[in-house]
Amino acid sequence: MAINGVNITPLSIIDTKGGDVLHAMKISDHGYSGFGEAYFSTIEPDAIKGWKRHKQMVLNLVVPVGTVRFILFDDRDNQDNVNQFQEVTLSIEDGYSRLTIPPMIWVGFQGLGLQKSLVLNIANIEHSPEEVERKELAEIKFNWSKY
């Protein structure tokens, strides 16, 4: 089930001699809501990072290397899909795409495959510890072993 406000945008890969060009985001793209910062995170195979949600930040996540499974959880009371999960796997092999997550959606992610994965976040605002909420994995019940 799709969570309100979450978008998956197919991205282009331009084949060039010596290596590909992987698009991530343009100012004209759906999901672009300003620029605050861009940063990379790595995740080891089978490692799980989460849970966290941003009160103001819009996340635009791209996986240019490896495979990452994102689990989103919506506990916003004013939504039709309250207490619903959405699962999205990003990799070049699964159809290179960008995952846009609005504020107030819990997100956790897991490295899949045999190699370390790389996640790019193009955020609309600069990271601030005051606008992030965190929970331990056990605080939101999800079966991370099934994939």
Rank of each mutant, 00 (worst) to 15 (best):
V21W: 06
W51C: 02
I101K: 09
L120I: 12
E37M: 13
T100Q: 13
M25C: 14
P64G: 03
P10Y: 13
E37L: 05
I13T: 09
K49Q: 15
W51M: 02
D77V: 10
G95C: 08
D46E: 11
D75M: 07
F73M: 07
V82I: 12
K55I: 10
H30L: 11
K116T: 15
L90A: 04
P10Q: 11
R69M: 07
W144T: 11
I3S: 08
W144Q: 13
D77M: 13
I27L: 07
N4I: 03
G66Y: 05
Y39A: 08
P64R: 00
S91N: 12
H30P: 07
P10F: 13
M25G: 09
S12R: 11
I13K: 12
P45E: 00
S33R: 12
E139V: 02
G31I: 08
G18L: 11
N143F: 03
N7A: 13
F35C: 10
V6L: 05
F70C: 02
I27T: 14
K146Q: 12
G111S: 02
E133Q: 15
A24L: 14
F142Q: 05
A123L: 01
V68G: 09
K116Y: 09
V88I: 15
S128Q: 14
P45Q: 01
F40W: 01
T67K: 15
G19F: 05
V6R: 06
V82W: 00
E139G: 04
I125E: 14
G34K: 11
R76A: 14
S97L: 06
P103C: 06
E131I: 14
V62E: 02
N143E: 12
N83Q: 09
N124E: 05
W144K: 14
Q86N: 02
E87K: 15
N4T: 12
